[in-house]
Design a protein around this nucleic acid. Structure first.
Length: 284
DNA sequence: GGGTTAACCTGCGGGC
DNA sequence: TGCCCGCAGGTTAACC
């Protein structure tokens, strides 16, 4: 998504912004009118990502640096469509540009996604980060990610491993699916107490996370319900490469034991009981 | 203050 | 046929 947006919107100047659902800008506390007004005449300077957040720095002459921050939630899409293209039922925000070319449309069925304008803060040697996502940890694919610091912070926690992987202030970009996939690759149980993890086990977890995220990126993302699409409206194919998630009852591709589905935090976890046995001191 | 839970939301599929 | 319920999931406010 980031790559697609970079190609299609970087360098273009915003001519109009139309917010058609207030919930889509609920994280912009000043409201939809302010959101739109701030972006008029702004030129998109690039597209960046950290974990599940995307942001586009925008340059407005004479104004402090800001960025449009986007989180797609579960069903959000950022589509580039010709100005005359039919309007989708779940269109939430529409951006048009001074060149009259393709519009950027934020479409989101379940409205868990959101857009906001946020001030850019000095990155102290690293890239500038929007203030609203300052609490989001580094992405494991970011060269700056510090494996040793992650291991130390993990050991200080008093919780289960899967819970920790889902905590975006500890490590970003991992959701329910990639957590299960990484744990399967690391042969660890999600209820494993974080304070008991060895350096080698943390290494296996990070290796698993990176394998899953890299493979998913190469495939264009995971789309099991046809809601996740790239800027051209095309789905990814990563769902066909899943080893644990959604495979309840099917044999583990490593040991043949049927994959088991278990309730977890009002959702589901999938694991192989053979490769990922429950630890004696489990922390759910 | 760290850890945990529920609410937010919509569409779909299963059961009756 | 149609209604109701459960489920999917990321984030955060509110609770313990």
């Amino acid at each position: 998504m980031r790559r697609g947006l970079d190609r299609w919107v970087s360098g273009r100047t915003i001519a109009a912004v139309q917010v058609s659902h207030p919930r889509a800008v609920r994280r912009h506390l000043a409201g939809g009118d302010d959101f739109a007004a701030r972006l008029l005449g702004a030129t998109v300077a690039g597209v960046h990502r950290r974990g599940k957040y995307l942001w586009m720095p925008v340059a407005v002459p004479g104004q402090a640096p800001e960025a449009v921050v986007a989180h797609l939630g579960m069903s959000g899409q950022l589509l580039l469509q010709p100005p005359g293209a039919p309007v989708h039922r779940h269109l939430r925000v529409r951006f048009s540009f001074t060149d009259g070319g393709r519009e950027l449309r934020f479409v989101d069925q379940r409205t868990f996604g959101a857009l906001a304008v946020s001030a850019l803060e000095d990155g102290q040697g690293r890239q500038q980060l929007p203030r609203s996502i300052a609490h989001i940890a580094d992405d494991p694919l970011d060269p700056a990610f510090d494996d040793e610091a992650f291991h130390r912070r993990l050991r200080l926690r008093r919780t289960g491993l899967k819970r920790a992987l889902l905590d975006q202030s500890l490590v970003s970009g991992i959701g329910n699916i990639y957590a299960d996939e990484a744990l399967w690759r690391a042969r660890l149980h999600g209820a494993r107490a974080t304070e008991t993890l060895t350096r080698a086990e943390t290494g296996r977890v990070l290796a698993g996370v990176r394998q899953v995220m890299s493979a998913a990126l190469a495939q264009g993302g995971t789309s099991f319900d046809a809601l996740y699409v790239n800027v051209n409206g095309e789905s990814g194919y990563f769902d066909r490469a899943l080893e644990a998630y959604g495979r309840a009852g099917e044999p583990c591709r490593r040991c043949g034991t049927p994959i088991r589905r278990e309730p977890f935090m009002n959702r589901s976890s999938f694991r192989c009981p053979g490769c990922q046995p429950r630890p004696r001191r489990a922390r759910l």
